[in-house]
Amino acid sequence: MVIAEVKALIKKEIKTEWQQRYAFGGMLLYIASTVFVCKLSFNTIDSPLTWSALFWIIMLFAAVNAVTKSFLAENAGRTLYLYTLASAQSIIVAKIIYNSLLMLLLSVICFGVYALLLGNPVTNSWLFFATVIVGNLGFASLLTMVSAIAAKAANNFSLMAILSFPIMLPLILTLIKLTKFAIDGIALSVCIKYLLTAFCINIIIVVLAYMLFPYLWRD
């Protein structure tokens, strides 16, 4: 892995995204319409657990939508060209970093819309902020790796959900718990354990992706 390669690849990802602005617009519209459906179905949410679970489920589907295309959208020729230019590790690290940035942007927008329509019960903003960051890094890295796996198979969009949801559960459950803590205003000393857990899951995912991806890309 070379830092310069990673930087160049991230720049390339951003440029591709900019060329396909409609895709990003599509994601924004997806978030807006999902939250609106939730608003109309729930009207108000009193329970902190429901609020946090719903928030993370919306984020989960937004993440699947946003990250799936990171390997699926690339055409075979360009992918091959890319692999002759950069090492496999640089590619996966660049994709993970780029998708994390994308997810962070999406989560800020999603939280904005969600809070606007369904209210914002969060009392400990710092904890919530940290949870959102850790959670989205985890979503991005796990889904990037799964999308690399699913891209090899036919019928890959449904495969993406089947492969990723079961292995995502430890992360999601920890995040929902943390968000509930942020709403209830539990002391940081209690939450730090869960925050570290979520962080460690992230580290495990990234390390696994870094080690396994080089086996995957070669056809």
Binding site: I149, K152, L163, I167, P170, I201, A209
Partner: peptide, 25 residues
């Protein structure tokens, strides 16, 4: 063989993480 081996390793580790963490939550 290659793709499923990669998924097997990835999923097994995260499954162990699940079995260790979630009962404590």
């Amino acid at each position: 063989a290659k793709v499923s081996a990669v998924y097997n390793v990835f999923a097994y580790v995260l499954m162990i993480v699940f079995l260790l963490i979630v009962p404590r939550l």
